[in-house]
Amino acid sequence: MLTILFDGVAYGMLLFVLACGLAVTLGLMNFVNLAHGAFAMAGGYITAVLMNRYGVPFLLTLPLAFIGPALLGLVLERTLYVQLYARSHLDQVLFSIGLVFMAVAAIDYTMGSQQQLIQLPGWLQGRVDVLGVQVGLYRSFIIGVCGVLVIALQLILTRTRFGSRLRAAVDDPRVARGLGINVSAIFATTFAVGSGLAGLGGALGAEILGLDPTFPLKFMIYFLIVVTVGGTTSITGPFLASLLLGIADVAGKYYLPDFGAFIIYTLMIVVLVLRPQGLFAHGR
């Protein structure tokens, strides 16, 4: 029981790191980016390739799994995404689905369609008994890393100049521009960081979520649930939604293996119909 809770929290934290970039894209640029999962997949594959082909240690691959997708995100944002901010949501959806399809086929072509397995270092394998609860070492590691990231993000958003500018830009881009804030630079930076975090999440999650070319499609709905249920007005909303989803998913798969997905999708619909702004958004 507590083990399930623990695994759920780890899963939820992972989901948050994967999806928080999407929350920012949606909240800041009002852009529906269904291709977010592709950046996560990129991070996962960077780690898998570096470890399996070049024997790079797991921990060393993680920074690269962040930097690679971040650079990719930066380039794509500046060249392609930037042209679509003013377009309809339908156009944005079509465009990003197109990117997903291309990414899926491209990875399939270069890497093959099989699951990528990564060999975790020995000190992260196995479980230990803490106060009678079986705790997986790797999941503890994930909770630790993701926890640090969450706290760091929160601090950046609330304590730094960049954070306050970002929040100003989210509130009203036009006013922010009037105040002399370089909104498009903020867009680009946050997009890159969001993509990087997704990549890092993909690398960390390769062991738990699995990694194959259909990753962006398989987890697209999870990311979307996190941001639509959590709302995009704060970072705590998506965080709580991630934890909830993580715990519900793990518990659902354990107790009701046949209906887990069914329940999650149904709950999502109910929440969206009752609270279109998200479960944790402040009513306006």
Partner: peptide, 21 residues
Amino acid sequence: PQYWQFWIGLILVVLVLAGRE
């Protein structure tokens, strides 16, 4: 045969960038 999806994706991206409307 297997990578037909790639071309669908490309068509979508180009179509949108070229101004679908």
